[in-house]
Each structure stands twice: as C-alpha cells, then as structure tokens.
C-alpha cells in the first residue's frame, strides 16, 4: 500500500468525506445548469472496473432517477469525449435516431442539444460533464466553450476528491488492513473527550516515540 492511500484512509476515518464531496459535485452541476440556463447538467465518473461511465450528480431533468445509471465508455458522445479528451457541443442532436433511443431509454427525456466536456485531473480523464438543452436561440460562442472548460476543471477536482474518498473507504472496509486499524484508532480518538482523550493522545505519543 502506498503512503498516499494510507494517509487518505486514516483521514477518511475522521472526515465524512464522501458526503461532503458529493455535495460539492452536486453544487457544481447546479451552477453549471444555472450559468448556461440549461434544462439539466450532470457529472459522470469513469468506473475502471466495469469500463463504464456512471452518473454521479444530476441537476434538473433526470435528477430523480439518473444517479447510478451507467453508459458505455466505448460508444456514444460521452464515450467519445472521454476517450479523445475533446469537448464538443451539439445542437439538433435529437435527429439522430440511435442517440434519441439511447437517451430516451435511460432518462425518459430527449435533449435537443448538449455540451460535453472531459473532466481531466493531472493527466487522467476521470469522467465527463454534460450540459443539456441550453436555450437554442442563443448561438454558441467560443467564450462559452472557455467557460465550459473552466467548469470542467472545477468538476474534475471535485470528482477526484470523491474518487479518492471512495478508494480510501474501500481500504477501510477491508477490516484486516493496517490502514483500517489506524483509521479505526483515529476515528475512535476523535469520538473521545476529556480525560479519556488526553490519555489516548498520551498513549499514541508514547507509541510514536517507540516507532521513531
């Protein structure tokens, strides 16, 4: 196990990470939807185990039903954006029969237009951000593309935090690991107060001296 994972696992023992990061992701899609005056916005995380894209946060149309739904990473617009790292904007896409069928099957909602941007953190694409059905009468501009890219950066950071929190939690859930032991100690210590906490801290200091 790397030091990073150990530290992350221990940190997860004392922080309610996943909930906080999920809220950050949700806030990102809400703001994206508002800024582009769109009907919906969503963030999808790439699941490397199943090689799929998973809806993690949805604002607007589909917010009740889409979280947890999966799309293939090898086909469709989301898959193309993930694989090629290129953002695209499409209008009148509902004329594409296959897209219409897929979209309707998943969401019960058929967008006319969409923007899709890759969420890249460091050199790794973590997923994609969709913005659906901005007002059609407004011609798209390069300024908006830039804004979309900036949004993508923010969403990528939120998605990276969520992913790290989940990996750390998975380590903790494997109760036999060293990290899980340390995290449980950290979690229990955080729950103590008064003399018991002071005694616990003294004990840990002694252990630290012993190990150093």
């Amino acid at each position: 196990m790397t030091d990073d994972r150990l530290r992350a696992a221990v940190a997860t023992g004392v922080l309610a990470s996943e909930d906080a990061h999920r809220a950050l992701l949700q806030a990102t899609v809400e703001v994206a939807r508002a800024i582009f005056r769109a009907k919906a916005s969503s963030v999808l995380l790439y699941d490397e185990v199943t090689d799929e894209l998973v809806f993690e946060a949805v604002a607007g149309e589909g917010s009740e039903t889409l979280v947890g739904e999966r799309l293939p990473s090898s086909t469709g617009i989301g898959g193309w954006v993930l694989v090629t790292r290129q953002p695209i904007v499409l209008d009148d896409v509902s004329k594409d029969a296959r897209f219409a069928e897929d979209a309707a099957k998943k969401t019960g909602y058929l967008p006319k237009g969409l923007m899709c941007v890759p969420l890249i953190h460091e050199e790794e694409p973590l997923g994609v951000l969709y913005v659906l059905d901005r007002p059609q009468e407004i011609r798209f501009s390069l300024e908006e593309m830039e804004l979309l890219g900036l949004f993508g950066n923010q969403a990528a950071i939120a998605l990276d935090l969520l992913r790290k929190a989940r990996r750390a939690r998975a380590v903790l859930d494997d109760a036999g690991t060293d990290a899980a032991l340390l995290a449980r100690v950290a979690e229990n210590l955080e729950g103590l107060d008064g003399e018991r906490r002071a005694a616990g801290v003294d004990l840990l200091r002694s252990l630290e001296a012993l190990f150093s």
């Binding site: 499409l90 209008d91 004329k95 594409d96 593309m145």
Partner: peptide, 9 residues
Amino acid sequence: GGARARSTG
C-alpha cells in the same frame, strides 16, 4: 442515421 446536427469544437 443520415441525419445532420449543428456542432462546435
């Protein structure tokens, strides 16, 4: 599907 779309990128 023989369709057209408007696109940016």
